[in-house]
Computed example of a mutant assay.
Amino acid sequence: MNILQLKDVKVQANQQTLLNVPDFALVSGDILGVIGPNGAGKSTLLKVLSFLQAPTVGTVYYKGEEKEVQTFSLEMRRRFAVAMQQSLLFDSTVYHNVAIGLKLRKEPKKEINKKVTYWLDMFNISHLAKKNAKTLSGGEAQRVNLARALILEPEVIFLDEPFSALDFPTKAQLIQDFKEIMKQTNTTTFFVSHDLIEIKQLTRSLCVMLNGEVKQYGKTNKVIDAPNKEVAAFLEKWKDFYKI
């Protein structure tokens, strides 16, 4: 089932078209990777799908139901979670940072403690619970960031290059742990990356964007092994950067 779908969507600003997507669907339970050069429209696509930005024209569907894009509600946004490259943690304990979303939703204290304990354990950061988040290493901070997003039990988690600032050993371990967590939770995932190694390790499907348009979309291995002409030219140009 398509959990999110775009029809004839365009995003325009300053007389420029930032996104032009005639038809795009995010399948429930999929882990979709999105690649493309800077300015390709990856982050704009993420914002539109996560209801953070309304398109200039077009229709957004949630589970087949058309949504009024100019009045995206808090209720709809709460169905999703977003984790960015910068963790942007509060100057407080790790426990508080992971719990903050549940506190804002006024969940019972006992339930909050149960969920925080679970997610700290899932990301192997239980020992950091009382530590100030501002003192964490990059890898630790990103684990807190991801736990803070997933504790909300989102229907879709949107990730915008969450591993790009990490050193290789830290990144490799976090990707392995995150892959296992995604397998257990079956959370639908939209994952923007500049690293095809990450894409190959984590994703089931792959979307390649160029100039604000989706140029190829399919199973990850098929797109990488059998790209169309435009995508092949892009991958060849960027092969060193993407470590193919």
Score class of each variant (00 low, 15 high):
Lys183Asp: 14
Thr187Ile: 15
Phe72Gly: 00
Trp119Met: 04
Val98Leu: 10
Lys134Arg: 14
Glu75Tyr: 05
Val57Phe: 11
Leu159Phe: 03
Glu180Gly: 06
Ser126Gln: 13
Ile181Lys: 07
Phe178Ala: 09
Val98Ala: 03
Pro108Gly: 08
Lys67His: 11
Thr188Gln: 14
Ala81Gln: 07
Glu180Pro: 04
Arg77Asp: 11
Pro154Asn: 12
Glu68Ile: 12
Glu111Gly: 09
Ala81Phe: 10
Leu174Thr: 11
Ser137Arg: 12
Thr117Lys: 11
Lys131Thr: 14
Gln173Thr: 04
Ile175Thr: 02
Ser87Pro: 00
Asp167Ile: 03
Ala99Cys: 10
Glu65Gln: 15
Thr170Ala: 15
Tyr61Arg: 00
Arg148Met: 09
Met122Thr: 00
Leu49Tyr: 02
Trp119Ala: 03
Leu159Trp: 03
Met122Val: 06
Asn124Glu: 13
Asn132Ile: 08
Val48Trp: 00
Glu161Cys: 13
Glu111His: 11
Gln85Asn: 10
Ile151Lys: 05
Tyr61Trp: 02
Lys134Thr: 15
Leu159Ile: 04
Ser164Lys: 04
Ala147Leu: 02
Thr170Ile: 13
Val57Gly: 08
Phe51Ser: 06
Ala133Asp: 09
Arg78Ile: 00
Met182Val: 02
Ser50Arg: 02
Phe80Gln: 00
Gly64Met: 12
Asn113Leu: 02
Ile151Val: 15
Val57Gln: 14
Lys103Thr: 10
Asp177Phe: 02
Asp167Thr: 10
Thr117Val: 09
Thr59Ser: 10
Thr170Arg: 12
Thr71Arg: 12
Asp177Met: 07
Arg77Ile: 10
Leu159Glu: 05
Ser126Glu: 12
Val48Tyr: 00
Gln70His: 05
Thr185Met: 04
Leu45Ala: 02
Ile112Pro: 01
Asn97Leu: 01
Asn145Trp: 02
Ala129Val: 01
Val156Met: 12
Asp91Asn: 13
Ser164Asn: 06
Met122Ile: 05
Val144Arg: 00
Ala83Ile: 11
Gly58Asp: 11
